[in-house]
């Protein structure tokens, strides 16, 4: 077992995809760095924190991208975002069997915030173009940095999300909420609280992710293969589907409170207080609500 969370973005790609099948576009050798970080005197990365390319997965042609959480928290800057947009536009042109995004990002890179914000919205539109063309988009979330901010929105625009219990999917980080509304609103140092509010188990139980796996690269690989096999085409975004989504999300507002254990109990899950202690298999067995 190799920990997905402890791998770098490139290690994840090497282990997740068919051996030696990853072909990278704009690789680090081209030294495509952020000009804005250079202006600030901040160290740059030769891939601006994201690797993009094509590969095969179980023999099928796929496009893959992986964000590097160790560089600027996976934050989306101008170049990083444009690489993702170009990669998605290329998918629209070349029509791979599926598009896989290994997301690990705090969202917009604050050092180049304005460009990053626009870039995230461009990624979102390009992703929805890919889906509309019938190409399924799968997002994998298992890095220690989680998937936050605009990338948390982008992830939920995909067909399918695979998470580990270490993975987190949300909008604002707990530190930001604590800074804004106080430690009694969200204690960012209470790891158990943070994970039961935004972690993979909670997202699985509420249907915010489609597969929950162990923090293991081969488990992610198996789940990704299962996803692209099941998703022969993207689920089209139709009015009927969005109405169903609307009803589902509206029903959530009936719950009054902010505590995950109370929410799980309200969903009818047995022994809700013990869920954080269960392993992935046991949580998976509880089923999504």
């Amino acid at each position: 077992m190799i920990s997905f969370s402890e791998c770098s973005a490139r290690e994840r790609l090497a282990l997740l995809l068919d051996a030696d099948s990853f072909h990278e576009w704009l690789p680090p050798a081209l030294k495509l760095t952020s000009p804005h970080l250079a202006q600030l005197g901040v160290p740059a990365s030769f891939d601006d924190g994201v690797a993009i390319g094509r590969a095969t997965l179980a023999g099928r042609p796929v496009f893959v991208a992986a964000q590097e959480g160790q560089f600027m928290g996976g934050g989306v800057g101008e170049v990083h975002g444009a690489k993702l947009v170009g990669w998605l536009q290329r998918a629209l042109r070349d029509r791979p069997d599926a598009v896989l995004l290994l997301a690990e990002s705090g969202g917009v890179r604050l050092h180049e915030a304005n460009a990053g914000l626009i870039a995230v919205s461009e990624v979102m539109r390009a992703l929805l173009d890919v889906r509309a063309a019938g190409i399924p988009v799968v997002v994998l979330i298992g890095g220690t940095g989680g998937c936050f901010g605009g990338m948390g929105i982008v992830a939920r625009c995909a067909d399918h999300i695979i998470m580990s219990d270490i993975g987190r999917l949300a909008m604002s980080g707990p530190e930001v909420i604590e800074a804004s509304h106080g430690v009694e609103e969200f204690d960012s140092r209470d790891r158990a609280l943070v994970w039961r509010t935004t972690g993979g188990k909670h997202r699985w139980l509420t249907g915010d992710c489609d597969a929950l796996v162990e923090d293991d690269v081969s488990a992610f690989r198996e789940a990704a293969i299962a996803a692209i096999t099941a998703l022969d085409a993207s689920h089209p975004v139709t009015l009927e589907r969005l109405e169903a989504e609307h009803a589902r999300l509206s029903a959530r507002l009936d719950f009054q409170g902010a505590e995950a254990i109370e929410l799980w109990a309200a969903l009818g899950l047995p022994d809700a207080a013990r869920i954080p202690d269960l392993d992935v298999a046991a949580v998976t067995a509880l089923g999504a609500r």
Binding site: G152, R156, C157, S172, I177, T197, A258
Partner: peptide
């Protein structure tokens, strides 16, 4: 910026709004 909104999946609700406009 509230814990309740994060718990309820604010990112999913925002994605839903964006996808409605995109549709």
């Amino acid at each position: 910026l509230r814990r309740r909104d994060e718990l309820l999946g604010i990112n999913r609700a925002m994605a839903h709004l964006g996808m409605c406009l995109d549709l």
